[in-house]
Amino acid sequence: PKDQAKKEIEKALRNGDEEKAKRLAKKYGISDDDWKELKKRVS
């Protein structure tokens, strides 16, 4: 599910692991808009 994916990506971003977050986003098909939203929430 997308919500689970977003949680994992957000966690990776919080850990400062943007490479992992990007890989997860690609793997789960997270859209650019969702990606920006996640980045905003974390920063």
Rank of each mutant, 00 (worst) to 15 (best):
D34L: 05
L13N: 00
I30A: 01
K39M: 11
R14E: 04
L24V: 04
S31F: 02
K39C: 02
K22G: 05
K7Y: 09
N15H: 09
Q4K: 11
D17M: 08
D17P: 02
E18R: 04
E8K: 07
D3P: 07
R23A: 14
K11G: 08
K20I: 08
K36F: 11
Q4R: 12
G16Q: 05
S43F: 15
A21R: 00
K2I: 14
D34E: 15
K27I: 12
W35V: 07
K11Y: 11
A12T: 04
R14K: 07
A12H: 10
L38A: 02
A21P: 00
G29M: 09
S43L: 14
L24P: 00
D32H: 08
K36V: 09
L24H: 02
K27E: 12
S31G: 06
D33R: 09
I9L: 03
Y28L: 06
R14C: 06
G16H: 07
I30W: 07
K22Q: 10
K6G: 05
K36H: 12
L13I: 04
E19A: 12
I9N: 00
R14H: 05
Q4L: 12
V42P: 04
A25R: 05
A12V: 07
K27R: 09
K36A: 13
K2L: 15
D3G: 09
P1D: 14
L24R: 01
R23K: 13
N15M: 13
Q4F: 13
R23M: 14
D17Y: 14
A25I: 02
S31K: 04
E8T: 05
K2P: 12
A21Q: 01
S43T: 10
K39D: 03
A12C: 05
K6L: 15
Q4A: 12
A25W: 03
K11H: 13
E10Q: 04
K20P: 02
K27H: 11
E8Y: 07
E19K: 12
L38F: 03
A21T: 01
K11M: 14
P1R: 10
L24M: 07
R23T: 10
Y28K: 02
K40P: 02
D17G: 02
L24F: 03
K27Q: 12
K27L: 14
S43C: 07
D34M: 05
P1Y: 10
E37H: 03
R41Y: 13
S43K: 09
E18C: 05
R14T: 05
G29H: 09
E37L: 05
K26D: 10
K40F: 12
R23S: 11
K20Q: 11
D33C: 03
K40Y: 10
A12I: 08
K26I: 14
K11Q: 14
K39A: 06
D33I: 06
V42N: 05
D34V: 07
L38K: 01
K36I: 13
I30Y: 06
K6E: 13
K26V: 13
D3A: 11
R23C: 08
I9W: 01
A5D: 07
K22Y: 14
K20F: 15
K27Y: 14
D32L: 05
A12D: 02
E18M: 07
K2R: 11
K6I: 15
A21K: 00
N15W: 08
Y28W: 10
K36N: 14
K7V: 12
K20R: 12
D3L: 10
E37V: 04
I30K: 00
R41L: 15
K6M: 15
L24K: 02
P1V: 12
L24G: 01
L38E: 01
D32Q: 08
E37S: 04
L13W: 02
S43A: 14
R14L: 07
Y28I: 04
V42E: 03
D3T: 09
E19N: 10
R23F: 13
K27M: 11
D32T: 05
A21D: 00
K22D: 04
N15I: 10
G16A: 04
I9R: 00
W35T: 01
E37T: 04
A21I: 01
K7S: 10
Y28N: 04
W35H: 01
K20E: 14
R41F: 14
L13M: 05
E18L: 07
D34Y: 03
K22R: 12
E8A: 10
Y28H: 08
G29R: 07
E10C: 07
A21S: 03
R14G: 03
A25F: 03
K2C: 07
K6H: 14
E10A: 07
K7A: 13
A5Q: 14
R41V: 15
I9A: 02
A12K: 02
Y28P: 00
E10G: 04
D3W: 11
K39Y: 10
K40C: 09
K2Y: 14
R14Q: 05
Q4P: 07
K26F: 09
S31P: 03
G29V: 04
G29A: 09
I30L: 14
D34H: 03
G16M: 05
W35A: 01
L13A: 01
D33N: 09
S31M: 03
S31Q: 04
E37G: 02
I9V: 10
Q4N: 11
A5P: 07
I9T: 02
W35I: 06
V42A: 10
K27D: 09
E18F: 06
K40H: 14
D32N: 08
P1S: 14
R41Q: 15
E19M: 09
R41C: 08
D32I: 06
A25K: 11
E10P: 00
A5K: 08
Q4H: 12
K20G: 13
W35M: 12
D3Y: 09
G29D: 09
K27F: 13
A12N: 03
A21W: 01
I9Q: 00
D17Q: 11
L24W: 03
V42Y: 09
D3S: 10
I30M: 12
G29K: 09
D32M: 06
K22A: 09
V42I: 10
E10Y: 14
K36L: 15
K22V: 11
R14F: 05
D33F: 05
R41A: 15
K39W: 07
D34P: 00
K36D: 15
R14V: 05
A25S: 04
K20D: 08
P1F: 12
G29F: 07
A25Y: 03
D3Q: 08
S43Y: 15
A21M: 01
K7D: 11
S43R: 08
Q4D: 13
D33G: 07
E18G: 04
W35K: 01
K11L: 13
K40D: 15
W35Y: 15
E18Y: 07
S31L: 04
K27N: 07
V42M: 06
S43E: 15
K26G: 06
A5C: 02
G29P: 01
K22F: 11
G16N: 08
L38R: 00
I9C: 03
D17H: 11
L38G: 01
K6V: 15
R23P: 00
E10L: 15
Q4T: 11
D32K: 09
E19R: 11
D17I: 02
E18T: 06
G16D: 05
E19F: 08
E19T: 09
K36E: 15
K11T: 14
K40Q: 12
R41H: 15
K36R: 11
E18D: 07
K26A: 10
W35F: 15
L13T: 01
K40E: 15
K22P: 00
D34T: 06
E19I: 10
K27G: 04
A5H: 14
N15S: 12
E37Y: 03
I30R: 00
L38C: 03
E18H: 06
S43D: 15
Y28T: 02
L24S: 01
G16W: 04
A12Y: 11
E8M: 11
K36S: 07
K40I: 10
I30C: 05
R14Y: 05
K6D: 05
G16I: 02
P1M: 13
R14D: 03
D17L: 10
R23G: 09
P1W: 13
Q4I: 11
L38N: 01
E18A: 05
K39V: 15
G16R: 06
K26S: 09
E8I: 09
R23L: 13
K7C: 09
D33Y: 05
D34Q: 06
E37W: 04
P1K: 12
K39F: 06
K6R: 10
K20N: 10
D33P: 04
S43N: 15
K7P: 03
A21H: 00
G29W: 03
A21V: 02
E19V: 11
Y28C: 03
V42F: 11
R23W: 12
S43H: 14
K7G: 08
G29L: 07
L24T: 02
E19Q: 11
A21L: 01
W35N: 01
A25D: 00
R14N: 04
K36Y: 12
L38Y: 03
K2N: 14
D32A: 09
I9F: 01
E37I: 05
V42K: 02
V42L: 09
K6S: 09
R14M: 06
K7M: 13
N15G: 10
Y28G: 02
S43W: 15
K39N: 06
S31W: 02
K20C: 07
A5E: 14
K6W: 15
G29Y: 05
K20Y: 15
